[in-house]
Simulated scan of single mutants.
Amino acid sequence: MPTIINPTYLDHDERKIHLPDNPILRNHYSHDILTNAALNFIREPKEEPFFLYAAYTLPHFSAKEEDEHGLTVPTTAPYMEKGWPEKAKKYAAMIDRLDKDVGKIITLLEAMGIRQNTLVIFTSDNGGHSATWKGFKTNGRLKGYKRDLYEGGIRVPFIASWPGVIPAGQVSNEVIAFQDMLPTFATLANTTLPGETDGISVIGALKGNALPPNGRVLYWDFGHTRDRYDQAIRLGDWKGIRNGKDQPIELYDLSKDIAEANNLAGDHPELVEKTERLMETEVAPSPRYPVGVKYQGGPIWKKNW
């Protein structure tokens, strides 16, 4: 499903919250509604520990990604007077709004006296967007953007805070992924997993420790329902990437080359061969998106939307 910053309705359990004025932003902004719902959920009396997933959409581009109208926000404050392009002001205002609303959640946890017993994680589902104003240097030294399998597309910020448990101001270089969240939360909740998963508990990394050697393979693919079919494999410090089904595999040592500037494929043919084998075996196509089948008009959600 595409992300729409200004939808005409939001789903809430089994009902819809209609936002009839939203296309012209007179009275409603979906992000604000999500924030209020999150705060109200936290305030509700509970006898057991709770889990809240606040799936914010900010910052996000709409269909017109390349022009200033591809970003919609009620105000560009506090950046109105900046000498930036208009879309840069809008993007920065989105992030400012998100930052302040995360702050509201933290403040509420503190006011309720449960901050010390609450793990808070702030992260993103992808890297920076190519349409972001270049003056912001959204991905720093990382190569690529959202929808790429270079680090700029798949490496994301991950901030975890838990007073008294997670050391403050510390940076970890352990490699973790979103599939690790379920086993991590299950361990913290002292419960068993519902079945087999691809993730591992990363509580040790959250506490500032090194994870035990696991030798696991991390796999990404993108675009197998379109003309492109990109794949990437991570093996320890090594990263193999292929931009297109019949394209050569590139190989990078991320411990020395986080910018993926030095392709070492020619120096390590054995690693390239292993990466290619893994690309063939690790892919797990779903019935909805079988590999090699191209759907007219793009991904299935466009046909059903």
Rank of each mutant, 00 (worst) to 15 (best):
E47I: 05
K64C: 07
S62D: 08
K100F: 12
W84M: 08
G83D: 11
K89Q: 01
P85C: 00
E48W: 14
E86M: 12
K89N: 01
D101V: 07
T107C: 07
Y53I: 14
T76C: 06
G113W: 04
M112V: 02
D99H: 01
I114L: 03
L52H: 08
S62Q: 08
K104I: 02
L58M: 04
F51T: 10
P59W: 00
F51N: 11
Y53L: 14
M112H: 04
L71D: 04
E65M: 15
A111I: 07
A63R: 13
R97P: 10
R115Y: 02
K89R: 04
K87T: 13
T76F: 04
A111Y: 08
R97E: 06
R115T: 02
E66W: 13
P85F: 01
T75M: 09
K46I: 07
W84Y: 12
M94I: 04
S62I: 02
T118F: 01
F50K: 03
P49Q: 10
I42F: 10
Q116E: 15
P45G: 10
F50S: 04
G113D: 00
P59I: 00
E48C: 13
S62N: 07
P49Y: 10
F51S: 11
M80W: 12
T118V: 01
D67L: 03
L108D: 00
G103K: 01
A88C: 09
Y91P: 09
E65K: 15
Y91S: 10
L52G: 07
G83F: 08
F51Q: 12
G113E: 00
T107M: 07
G113K: 00
A55W: 06
M80F: 13
P78S: 03
Y91K: 10
Q116H: 13
P78Q: 06
L108H: 01
G83V: 05
E110P: 04
L52V: 06
V73S: 05
N117H: 13
V73G: 05
H69W: 11
E86P: 13
P85S: 02
M94K: 05
E48D: 15
M94F: 05
A88K: 05
P78R: 04
T57K: 12
E47F: 06
K90E: 03
M94V: 03
N117D: 14
P85T: 00
R43F: 12
D99S: 02
K82R: 15
T57S: 11
I95M: 01
S62M: 08
A88H: 08
L71E: 04
S62T: 06
T75V: 09
Y79F: 01
M94S: 05
A63W: 13
D67K: 02
A111F: 07
E44M: 13
E48A: 15
Q116A: 13
K82W: 15
I95R: 00
V102P: 03
R97F: 07
R43I: 11
E44W: 14
E47V: 06
M94G: 05
D67Y: 02
I42S: 09
L58N: 06
Q116N: 14
